[in-house]
Design a protein around this nucleic acid. Structure first.
Lengths: 267, 267
DNA sequence: GGGGTATAAATGGTCAGACCATTCAATGGA
DNA sequence: TCCATTGAATGGTCTGACCATTTATACCCC
């Protein structure tokens, strides 16, 4: 019936007020908030407390802090980056696997393709065909430009999401792709025939979208992602370990013997 | 060729070290870190700086801070809830319209229903039937318990996402529901027959999932959400043009309906 | 007069020490 | 034995100071 009472900390109140102002639109993106010393007076808190609040807002991706004269907290326009990071942490902690991500992507891309086929504008088609031509040139340049081909591949997928006109598709798909790329691209196939097959899929997909064939686009996209996933998972299985694995990017964090407590002092 | 050099702030270094220790597994979940005063000595920083770092880690969902004797920063593993929050914030900030949200939800729920039908366990079915019974009792209690019925409705949808066993579905669907609930529920239908129809849909949906009928579950879910959306959009249209219906492309987004608040901003 | 440089002001970043509030466990009394 | 009291440990907040960075302005030289 009742909930546990949790003492509201001062910095949380500050966070809540500024967050609400931003989310409600009272503070527009790009707008600069008053300096810390002014804010501290406005809220009636000390500077360390205010700074804790600003740090939280920064971590939420709502503000960004600039140094120097004329600097200060600036309201930022949000992007999918935060979602991507959060998802990446879950992957690293093995709470989300390659299989989860792959499955989710399959349904998503199918839906995106269908919507894109219904909504695409002439400009969308033009852009997609340009990207397709670019991808093709990378493909024909051989393995040397494999990375560029794969980047173009992702670019096409995101451009299709763009053609739906629905920003949710763009954000979500971008996060999924980014994480697949960052954490699982070691499982990508490099073989020439498979890249070729990939390209052919994309060509057929763009053609279906161009002619407004939603069911066809859906079918092609589903098949495309399904084959892609099957290849990745086969390679993952071949490595003898089940995904997910450690991320590729490491920043050689120095050995911090700090932050480690071996014994629980409370016995 | 080169990237802009960004001066590393002290608190960022502290965050990076502790984050790496947690993500790499050197610090296990549930473990208590040393007290702020000890940590401050270990890292050689001041307490306000250390606290900024802890606040960031807390916001990332990596630690939680407990008060009192024996308290301190405790390692917590972030769960899908963090993704939900981040995505929900992004959706709200992108100022997506009801039409965008509805469209996205339609494809998502269909996919979720199909996966749930393939993967559901006996426990899932039992849970779904229990929730269904609860919803029914709220429904039969009349308009007085309308809110509770709607909450049970959402609960069933999320339980279905749960039955897919894929945490991504849970996070994304929860984000969508949260936004619909918080920002668009003024368009929800309150009429008795419509609630009844809603319930019947759910019953059929759960039945299809229980018998493992993926295509059937997909079809029912799609139809269910579609009708729901149609009702909401009709009501939105009735309220005049204040409600965004089908903005095709809003690259330069105008102010959304909830961007106007007269409340006195303390900033 | 124009352009580049030095200076100053504004602002975030960090530090030090202090005191308050909360929590839990040890202590002591009923 | 049980419960209330008390004190210690810990996070929460405040004050005030100084350093580092950035930008704008004034200045000087050409």
């Amino acid at each position: 019936m009742f909930q546990t009472v949790r003492p509201t900390k001062v910095f949380q109140d500050v966070v809540a007020q500024i967050e609400e102002a931003i989310l409600s639109g009272r503070l527009a993106a790009g707008e600069t908030l008053p300096s810390e010393r002014e804010l501290k007076a406005m809220f009636g808190v000390s500077r360390p407390t205010l700074r804790e609040a600003l740090r939280v807002l920064e971590e939420k991706g709502l503000i960004e802090i600039r140094l120097g004269t004329g600097g200060g907290p600036v309201v930022t326009r949000p992007d999918a980056g935060r979602v991507t990071e959060t998802l990446a942490r879950l992957i690293r902690l093995q709470k989300v696997s390659l299989a989860h991500l792959a499955e989710f992507r399959e349904g998503l891309e199918a839906q995106v393709a269908a919507q894109a086929a219904r909504r695409r504008s002439a400009a969308d088609i033009k852009r997609l065909r340009a990207l397709l031509a670019q991808a093709r040139s990378f493909l024909e340049a051989g393995p040397v430009r494999r990375e560029e081909f794969l980047a173009a591949d992702r670019g096409i997928h995101l451009a299709i999401a763009d053609a739906t006109g629905n920003p949710i598709y763009q954000s979500v798909l971008a996060s999924v792709h980014e994480n697949i790329h960052r954490y699982y691209d070691r499982f990508l196939s490099m073989a020439e025939p498979e890249l070729r097959e990939n390209y052919d899929d994309l060509e057929a997909l763009v053609a279906a979208i161009a002619r407004g064939d939603a069911p066809g686009a859906r079918r092609i996209a589903a098949g495309h992602v399904m084959r892609f996933n099957a290849r990745m998972q086969r390679r993952a299985a071949d490595e003898g370990r089940s995904a997910p694995l450690a991320p590729r990017r490491r920043r050689t964090a120095g050995p911090p013997p700090h932050a480690r407590r071996n014994e629980d002092p409370r016995i």
